[in-house]
């Protein structure tokens, strides 16, 4: 059973309109414009219009294109689970943890690898929080450790072991040639190797992170752009509470 195919929308249903821009490593000329048009055609686009083409550096040209894609997708076949299912306020999370777990949860966060951009992890952990939503440091139910930037995955694992951390937040903001995925993978593998993986709630975050990607990497959740601290807090609290309940059942 298939549902309705969704296509990009310009100004008419199913017109499939897409805007794109790219650079070609050639001097600009009419030939370069035509090359850009043909390239878009090879990508499968129809009605290709090169609306802008110009030199941007010696040996490089820049193009802006509009085109129509004949492709569509069936929403019913798409699986992209949301992690933002446990909407709770800070007070509710605190009450929930007190009630279901009865102790403070220890949360360690770090920007791992060589990434020095702590914007993401700070937004989630710092008292001040993000967009008026307080950070985890402000919660009574969490004891937080912000390890900062450029933390090696092995150091984060060692810290987790030493401080009996309940939840790990690994952040990667800026990537270069896939370094973010490599670091996330390394952290998950090290935790597995140390026998700690099942003991912690493992969460990753960053502007390019999706929950689907996180689950493929073996994480419990992945939080992308625009995530509020309370969303992460609620996820940690609910996940740990469920885990403890399952453990007591066994």
């Amino acid at each position: 059973m298939t549902g309705r195919l969704i296509k990009p929308y310009g100004d008419t249903m199913n017109d499939g309109k897409v805007q794109m821009s790219f650079t070609l490593p050639v001097e600009w000329s009419e030939t370069a414009d035509e090359a850009a048009r043909q390239l878009a055609g090879k990508m499968g686009f129809a009605d290709v219009q090169v609306v802008e083409g110009r030199p941007i550096a010696g040996g490089f040209s820049f193009f802006v294109l509009y085109a129509s894609t004949p492709q569509g997708v069936d929403l019913e076949t798409i699986h992209a689970p949301s992690v933002r299912t446990h909407a709770m306020t800070m007070e509710e999370v605190d009450a929930y943890v007190l009630d279901r777990i009865g102790r403070k949860l220890r949360v360690a966060g770090a920007c791992i690898g060589t990434d020095a951009h702590t914007v993401g992890i700070d937004a989630i952990l710092n008292m001040k929080g993000y967009k008026g939503d307080y950070g985890l440091e402000r919660y009574h139910s969490f004891e937080t450790f912000n390890l900062g930037s450029q933390v090696a995955p092995e150091d984060l694992v060692a810290f987790t072991k030493l401080h009996a951390v309940d939840a790990i937040l690994a952040s990667q903001v800026v990537t270069q040639k896939g370094s973010d995925l490599k670091n996330f993978t390394e952290l998950a593998e090290l935790l597995e190797a140390e026998g700690l993986r099942d003991r912690v709630v493992l969460v990753c975050g960053g502007p390019r992170v999706t929950n689907l990607m996180a689950s493929e990497l073996g994480y419990d959740a992945g939080f992308g752009r625009g995530t509020l601290p309370s969303e992460v807090a609620a996820f940690i609290a609910v996940t740990l509470a469920h885990r403890l309940r399952e453990e007591t059942r066994v």
Binding site: F60, F62, V173, T175, Q176, R208, R225
Partner: peptide, 13 residues
């Protein structure tokens, strides 16, 4: 800025 280290075109723009 929030996406990647700049591409050539990003810098030119």
């Amino acid at each position: 800025e929030a996406i990647h280290t700049p591409y050539l075109a990003d810098r030119a723009l």
